[in-house]
Design a protein around this nucleic acid. Structure first.
Length: 528
RNA sequence: GGGUCUAUGGCGCAGCCAGGUAGCGCACCGGACUUUUAAUCCGGUUGUCAAGGGUCCGAAUCCCUUUAGACCCGCCA
């Protein structure tokens, strides 16, 4: 073990890049530039899983560069896909556009050139925010500019063979009957309704009939148009089962990761690339989907979407990168509640990187340091940042709702957690505050008060409104409880329930003066 | 029908993909501070790593079999 040679920076990313290189070398391919690709959905709201595909591909690019090769990341938007379902929260007016390519549907929010671009932009914005660099390409341009012409032609020539193979590999028989190409109907602009039956090789034209088709449980009306689509001029697209292969060959893609939901498509595409197009398929890695906490798939078209934007309200960009670079295997249930531990874990990694925490196992140390480097996109800081426990920040943010930044900062200084107020800490307080507002909200608690407790509470309120030394508050509370026949223990409990919504809490005297006596008096008076 | 993943203290999980002392959070117990109070601080308890077999000097980790659960594909993309 100790003899083990460490590859690159010791992470799975390095291992993968190294395996990829080895394969490329044995294929004897040109290694001047190694292109990696990531797909961006354009039909639904892009969630953190879509982001992950691009972030990880970027990691592979970094690893390749680290090995001394040139590499590019292409972020490809499938915006010629048809809209199959209106995502949660989007206007019903989209109904009339079902089955049309998303790049031909107007943006319901009017801020982008199309519905598809609106969706892609959300993802691109997320990538920008976490610092991922990429070259953006769109399906609509790819097809319009005829970049896949050659591949489409070859695929259509071999459609019978491909149809049989699809049936053999994945049991789908549809393509034994139809061509793996969807023209956009010249009359109604719809995609899946136009079923292609025949390819006229000499003219490079596809014959189609636009008829009713079922998508999901919905029937989409076709317009009955019968037409011929010129694959070099008219808009249309290859079916997914063969499209990747065409794109890989045309763009010379050497690596692409995929989620297990499209495993079958990748299997078919690999075969098409190898056997029909004569382009050895890219190196792959399969990853599991992110599931929500109930164990259900995060659906792009449902409302339970964790977007990068939403995540960044509560966590740092690095917490996202850590989540995605930490590992790639294994099913994961994901929720915003994972943010605090990722924030903490990043700090731990930083401590390991700068030698503040000892790790004995050399391979493990290398791996953890490597992970830290990737999370910093191989450009780690020269020195560690000031660490503040994120959970502590959430707790403090919960207590101080007004003038939060200033008061939490003051508390941190008093605790000796930080030496100086820093702008980074301000940012942390802000996101921890968002987290606290969103997830730590406590309902108005039911507090049972008998008459003597009420009386004691009234007296306390009166005395809090007077000027008094904070040290005395502790004592005062105790005395008030005693002299009103309330068990001090119960009285404290009541106060915690009202103020914090919990049955326990910090030493209450100083705590009340932290929050502000008048403020507490006001809160308490709602209960008498 | 095909495929993938998961199984680790009471609970939630990390560690596995590159084998080398089984770890973290919560909970729990003790102590500090307290005339009562812990989101604090210090210390501690908790495990046949799903079952069985194999490889190895050495297996939670790699291989095979079994069991249970989850998910994906078999519309479309």
């Amino acid at each position: 073990m100790s003899e083990q040679k460490i590859i690159g920076r010791g992470t799975w990313i390095d291992k993968l890049a190294s395996d990829l290189l080895e394969r490329e070398k044995s294929l004897g391919r040109n290694l001047d530039i190694i292109r990696v690709e990531s797909g961006l959905g354009a039909s639904g709201v892009p969630h953190i899983g879509s982001l992950g595909d691009a972030v990880r591909a970027y990691g592979v690019k970094l690893a390749l560069e680290n090995f001394g090769y040139k590499s590019d990341l292409i972020a490809y938007s499938d915006d010629l896909d048809g809209l199959r379902k209106i995502p949660e929260g989007f206007p019903d007016s989209l109904e009339e556009h079902l089955a049309k390519p998303v790049s031909l549907i107007p943006d319901p929010y009017g801020c982008h050139d199309s519905y598809g671009m609106h969706m892609s932009s959300i993802l691109l914005d997320g990538l920008d925010k976490v610092g991922i660099k990429y070259e953006f390409r769109r399906a609509v341009d790819t097809y319009k500019n005829g970049l896949l012409q050659k591949q489409i032609h070859t695929i259509l020539q071999n459609s019978a063979k491909i149809g049989d193979k699809i049936s053999e590999l994945v049991g789908q028989e549809k393509y034994q009957k139809y061509l793996p190409y969807f023209p956009v109907c010249a009359d109604c602009n719809r995609l899946y309704t136009a079923e292609a039956t025949e390819y006229i090789e000499d003219e490079k034209k596809v014959k189609y009939l636009c008829q009713d088709t079922e998508i999901g449980s919905k029937i989409i009306k076709g317009c009955g148009h019968q037409g011929e689509a010129d694959i070099t001029k008219d808009l249309g697209k290859l079916a997914w089962k063969v499209e990747f292969a065409a794109r890989w060959a045309a763009f010379d893609i050497r690596f692409e990761a995929y989620g297990k939901d499209i495993m079958d498509s990748v299997k078919v595409n690999d075969w098409v690339a190898d056997e029909i197009l004569g382009f050895p398929h890219p190196y792959h890695v399969k990853y599991e989907m992110f599931l929500d906490k109930g164990g259900k798939k995060i659906s792009k078209s449902l409302g339970n979407v964790i977007t990068a934007q939403k995540w960044l309200e509560f966590g740092s960009p690095k917490s996202i990168l850590l989540l995605l670079y930490k590992r790639i295997t294994g099913a994961r249930e994901l929720g915003f509640e994972d943010i605090p531990s990722l924030m903490t874990e990043y700090n731990e990694l930083e401590d390991i990187y700068f030698g503040r925490i000892k790790v004995d196992n050399q391979a493990k140390l290398a791996k953890l340091k490597g992970l830290y480097e990737y999370v910093n996109l191989l450009n780690p800081p020269k020195q560690a940042s000031t660490h503040v426990n994120y959970r502590l920040l959430i707790e403090l943010a919960r207590i101080f709702k007004e003038n939060r930044n200033e008061r939490v900062m003051k508390k941190l200084l008093a605790y000796g957690v930080i030496k100086n107020p820093e702008t980074e800490i301000e940012k942390l307080i802000e996101i921890a505050g968002n987290y606290s507002n969103e997830f730590d909200e406590q309902e108005k608690t039911q507090v049972d008060l008998d008459d003597s407790a009420k009386k004691a509470l009234k007296i306390l309120i009166d005395s809090l409104e007077a000027d008094e030394e904070p040290d005395d508050i502790q004592n005062t509370i105790y005395q008030i409880a005693k002299s009103n026949n309330v068990q001090p223990k119960d009285f404290f409990k009541i106060l915690y329930q009202i103020i914090l919504g919990t049955s326990r809490g910090p030493k209450i005297g100083p705590f009340i003066s932290d929050i502000g006596r008048k403020q507490v008096a006001k809160t308490l008076s709602e209960y008498v």
